[in-house]
Nucleic acid binder design. Structure first.
Lengths: 243, 243
DNA sequence: CGAACCTTTGAGCGTCCTCAACCTGCGTGG
DNA sequence: CCACGCAGGTTGAGGACGCTCAAAGGTTCG
């Protein structure tokens, strides 16, 4: 085991076994440490040659704004996740990223990624895997928005965040700390903030889950899982596939 | 210019300039040609070590089924697109893929991709770009479902398909041939088939677009673009970025 | 200690759903 | 050659889920 692992390293190791060279290359990503205040817009849609980041502490969210001022949050990022990976591959960023809490992140340049690909192909595969996993989560959100009721959506969302946070040691079956407001939930789930409040009340009164004072408590984990028809398969977190 | 380019090659060249070696590696993907009947389920959710394909002719769709039997179509694939790229990186496929029309495709094994990465890093970057572009489209669908009305959704969807098809020479500003049924549209847009019908009628009566007899005709391209607030930036198809 | 932000609840309304019926075109088999 | 079945498209009526508007408490932070 090398020195203390970053959240990203820990996540990638869930997919591939990486060589010393791969790990060394990965460590080189970890220069340019920066921190941002809560609410800071780190990447904005349309921005040319934006940076990407690897989040090491705090929560962020990626979103798109519509002409009428509404916004749709695409996903939330937690430690170990990339921020704006797509924005460095594209000419211009196709989405915005904002810090939800105060965050710590390290900047990644396009050349870092591309050089790494040339030197460490297994790392390239791991990055492709990580990008695919992100996409799988977006797809699951899509299903959420397209075909589930408000209550199912909320249940599914809370369970997904719980599972993702558990993977990096920030939560378990009893619950997790959650810095989101009901407005965040509304923008992520395609609901109005008012309706989010009603749905949360309903789930609480049914004894399934309680979200209060920045903490989500799973009162009835199995019941909630059933309501949401939640299945973790799409998170693909069962141990290294490529050896 | 090498021999006749496959749709995939053409698409990747929109992002990177590829060397002769890269192109040769890419050509090696093109063995194992297969064809499938309309309606054939090529990949199904939960399947272990599924294949991926590169679509060379026809339309396919990727979707997820919910326990209650409803389905959400995530995206449609047209020539040049990957089918089930994520399913070979994951232990089990997280979604299903079905042929909408009769299709021609070439099978791609996980080892093909991984070997290619080791030999042609620029190709790896190109594949990552292609995967990112797919994700960008999924994200746009997400916004569609979360924050747009039925009419806007439909308008946006038809314009996106038009733009994608135009890129591979299968359509232009006047319209495109479209093998989808109103049920396909309903499952993709998170609407009921009945409401899809009403929305299409409305768009037709407003003189914006007509979908009839397997053909989409843009009666008022600019008007439709305005209704949908459609912007092609997320398709990132402006010419090679990496040289 | 005030102001901004967040949460909570009520009332009324609109989009989109469900159920139901009927029509069209097309391929199949008697 | 017509009868039939079936998939897809079209239209109407009624209802539910989630929205908007509005207003009042609570909480946090500068």
């Amino acid at each position: 085991m090398p020195t203390l692992q970053s959240p990203l390293t820990r996540k990638l190791l869930a997919f591939v076994v990486l060589s010393e060279t791969d790990l060394a290359t990965l460590t080189r990503f970890d220069r340019r440490r920066r921190s941002f205040m809560s609410g800071h817009e780190m990447i904005h849609e349309g921005q040319a040659k934006a940076s990407a980041f690897i989040l090491s502490e705090g929560w962020a969210c990626s979103y798109k704004l519509l002409p009428d001022g509404e916004r749709q949050i695409v996903d939330f990022q937690i430690p170990g996740d990339f921020l704006g990976l797509r924005s460095i591959l594209f000419r211009t960023a196709d989405h915005s990223v904002e810090a939800v809490t105060r965050i710590e992140a390290t900047e990644v340049l396009a050349t870092d990624i591309l050089d790494a690909f040339a030197q460490a192909p297994r790392l390239a595969a791991a990055v492709l895997w990580a990008a695919s996993r992100d996409e799988a989560m977006v797809v699951e959100h899509l299903v959420n928005l397209g075909r589930r009721s408000a209550e199912e959506r909320m249940a599914h969302f809370l369970l997904e965040m719980g599972a993702r946070l558990a993977l990096v040691g920030l939560g378990d079956r009893t619950g997790f700390d959650c810095p989101l407001t009901q407005y965040h939930l509304a923008d992520a789930l395609g609901l109005s903030a008012v309706h989010v409040n009603r749905v949360l009340r309903q789930l609480r009164e049914e004894g399934l889950v309680t979200f209060r004072n920045g903490r989500v408590v799973f009162d009835d984990f199995k019941g909630l899982t059933a309501v949401a028809s939640f299945d973790t398969a799409y998170l693909d977190q069962e141990g290294p596939l490529l050896r």
